[in-house]
Every structure is written in structure tokens, then in C-alpha cells.
Design a protein around this nucleic acid. Structure first.
Lengths: 208, 208
DNA sequence: CGGACGCTTGAGGGTCTTCAAGGAATGTGG
DNA sequence: CCACATTCCTTGAAGACCCTCAAGCGTCCG
């Protein structure tokens, strides 16, 4: 069990992959950076998720705490021994990995083919689905606008403008910048799926 | 063993996932489509690769032959029994899956943070790396411009224009639209990595 | 020979980015 | 307790990049 402060690295891309981690509490970001500093966030991970699974010599992403973080650390050799010994474990890891792959594929559709409003809507709905433990239509954003931008392939400014637009159009409310209320779930889902009606979205049908 | 003609579907997104496939020869595309028809190609698969691995009830992508295709089909129950019986197999699948995940993550960086020339350069280099069996700096494109566009999150026209630009700048040659020669590997790699010098790329330093 | 299909090229417009500045919130030290 | 600094979020204006619409070109095949 290990506590990590926001902004601290769990590991960096290229580090020797000594350990497998399990997140106990908090949120972290996984990301890659290009040489000139452009950053793409691969995903946000939180409670219960494993990382560092990939059986490679080196980590392929950087893992950094977004919020105060608690993790459990497993040594890789011990972890790999358990895979071979516990028959059910390999299957569960296979399931976990292929689920991650499915999520990654949805993210590719988002990054390659969705507009800024569609991206933000999809993002909010995926967060809402994750924390259905909380209030129905209330989503907390542990990460800042910059993180959201680097996750959705946008800039900070565009993310901010898009939040404002969704708010002005009555789809969401923003009690604070870090807290979103979903006011019109149906329309948000239609937007995220890419079937928003042209009336409302095609040409500034909102409130600009 | 089964032969499939170009344009035919191996399976569709949402179909019951009865089988696991192994590609013997040829190339196929995996893709998802939004309701309004926008398509994102998740990847191109060819010789030796497995698909349909994900232990889910339904396929999450559509698989379609790009070229004439030969596949081996395994029934899922038999395949899953082998996973539990052969101790090494689960590990190899784990490796294969986590490798796919690594590729998917690189693709996210490409889709979210790279410019059109960077995307095309990265694409060509990944093809060149795959078929190092062939000639050194010669790449065959089994897929058309439309497929490349939907893979890179661009349009047909932008892909075509970018090929032309790379050609005019002397990085590649295009003996035919389906065959690329890499003339300046260093500069192509620099471009793909995102560290192209501003002199040449910042503002129409090429030949437009 | 004619049609279909895919690739290429051109012109114009839209979306998102870049550059810049103005608020709002948090934390610290006087 | 309040001034101040820092940081993040928001908003504005201008421009770049890519997309859309449209037409021309080449090749393959009937």
C-alpha cells in the first residue's frame, strides 16, 4: 500500500516494468508525449483497476496521479508466477485486457471521427456510466480542462468553449468547473452517438 | 480453411461471437461505424494474426476482406477449452492482446495529436515495418485511399493531397497509387515522430 | 468504345487552434 | 484577516488546417 500525491509519477514511459499496480483509491492518467511536447492521454484509471499488466520489459505509457492516490504494488515475477499457477487468473486477465482493448477502440472512433461537442458528450457519459455508484445525473471531474483536452484530442480552449455551449443549450449545468449535472440525458446521448439533429447542432442552433 | 472475396464480411459488429479466426493470407479491415455512416477503421490485419479473441458474447467491430482472404475458423468453445488446458497458450494470448493494446495506444496518439502529414508518414512506416520480408524501402498498399482515410481520421482528399505533398518534397515516390517507395527514410521518421523541422514543414516549405 | 470506379486537383468554407487577455478560486504570508 | 500570487477556467479575435463540394483524369472491364 502506497500513497502518492497529485502530479507525482507512478512510472514513466520507457522505465523498466518491475511492478504491476492496483489502484485502491484516487484517479491517475496514462499518457504518451511526442518529442515536441504534444501529449495524448490514453486513459484515466481509478478504483480497482490494474496497470502495468502488459508483459513487456518496459512501460509503454507514463502513469501520473491526478488526485491523491493509493495503490498496491505487486512484484512482476511473483505476479507472473500466480498467472501460471492460478488457472482462473489468466482468464480473468484476458477478460480485463480485452475489455481495455474494446474501450481503446471506442476511443479511436471518438478521436478519429467525432466533433468537439460529440467528444465532450461521449466523455461525460462514460464518466457517468463509471460512477453510477454516485448520484444519477451528477458527474465529478477529478481532472482539469487540460487533461480532458489531451484525452479528447482537443485544446483547453475548445474544451472550455464546448462546456459553455452544452450549458447554454441546456444539456448540462456547471455548478462548479469540476462538477457537471446532466440535464438532458437523451440529447446528450444522441450527440455522443453522432446522431444529433441538424436543427439543433448543424449551424449554431444553440445560443451563440 | 475458408476463402473470402474482397468486400465480403467475416462478421459484423453486434453478431454473436461464435468463432475465432486466424488469417492465413490476405488483408482485412476492422472497423466501426457511427449511425450517420462515419467510419473509423480500427486496424488492418494480415497473415498470421488472430481476431475474435475477445471473450465477449458479441463482436465489437466489423471485419471485412480488403484483398482476397484465406482464414482458418475455430469454434469458440473448443478454443476456450484449449486456453484452460494448454498452460502456455493463455500466456501467449495475453502477450498478443497486450501487444494489440500497445498498438491501439500508438494509434490514439496518432489520431489525437498528429497532423495529416505526420499521420501518413507514421502509417507508411508501420506498413514498412510489418513487411520487412519484402524489399527494403518499398511498401505495397493493399487498401485504397478511402480505407487509409478512415484509418487515419482524415478524408480521401486529404490523404491524396498528403501523398502528393510527400512525393513533391522528395520523401516518397509513387510508381502506382498502390505502391510507395520510401526515398528519405530519416526525414519520414522525423516527420512521423513529430519532430519535423519548421523550415520544411511549418508553412508550405514544400512545393505547393 | 463507353461506363464505372478510384485517384487527384481546385476552390471555398467551417471547425478547431493559436495567441492574448480577463476573471474566478485557492493558498500563503504579512 | 486581508493582500497577493499562482493557477485554472473562460472568453475574444484571427488564422491554419482540414473538410466539403465539384470537376477532371486515368485505368480497368464489360
Amino acid at each position: 500500500m502506497q500513497r502518492i500525491a497529485p502530479g507525482s509519477l507512478l512510472f514513466s514511459e520507457g522505465d523498466d516494468a518491475h511492478d504491476v499496480f492496483e489502484i485502491v483509491s484516487g484517479t491517475l492518467r496514462l499518457y504518451k508525449v511526442l518529442i515536441d511536447g504534444r501529449r495524448q492521454i490514453i486513459g484515466f484509471l481509478s478504483g480497482g483497476q490494474l496497470l502495468g499488466l502488459a508483459p513487456r520489459r518496459q512501460y509503454v505509457c507514463t502513469a501520473e496521479a491526478v488526485t491523491p492516490l493509493t495503490v498496491r504494488r505487486y512484484l512482476r515475477p511473483a505476479f507472473e508466477r500466480r498467472i501460471d499457477e492460478e488457472p482462473g487468473l489468466a482468464r480473468r486477465l484476458l477478460d480485463a485486457l480485452s475489455n481495455e482493448l474494446r474501450v481503446a477502440q471506442d476511443q479511436m472512433v471518438l478521436l478519429g471521427r467525432k466533433s468537439a461537442p460529440e467528444k465532450v458528450a461521449s466523455f461525460l457519459l462514460s464518466l457517468a456510466a463509471d460512477e453510477h455508484g454516485g448520484c444519477e445525473d451528477r458527474v465529478d471531474l477529478p481532472m482539469g480542462r487540460g487533461d480532458i483536452a489531451d484525452y479528447l484530442g482537443l485544446t483547453v480552449e475548445t474544451v472550455s468553449r464546448t462546456f459553455t455551449k452544452l450549458k447554454n443549450d441546456g444539456l448540462i449545468a456547471l455548478p462548479t468547473p469540476a462538477s457537471v449535472e446532466i440535464l438532458d440525458l437523451d440529447q446528450l446521448e444522441a450527440l455522443a452517438a453522432g446522431c444529433a439533429d441538424e436543427e439543433a447542432w448543424g449551424r449554431n442552433g444553440g445560443s451563440w
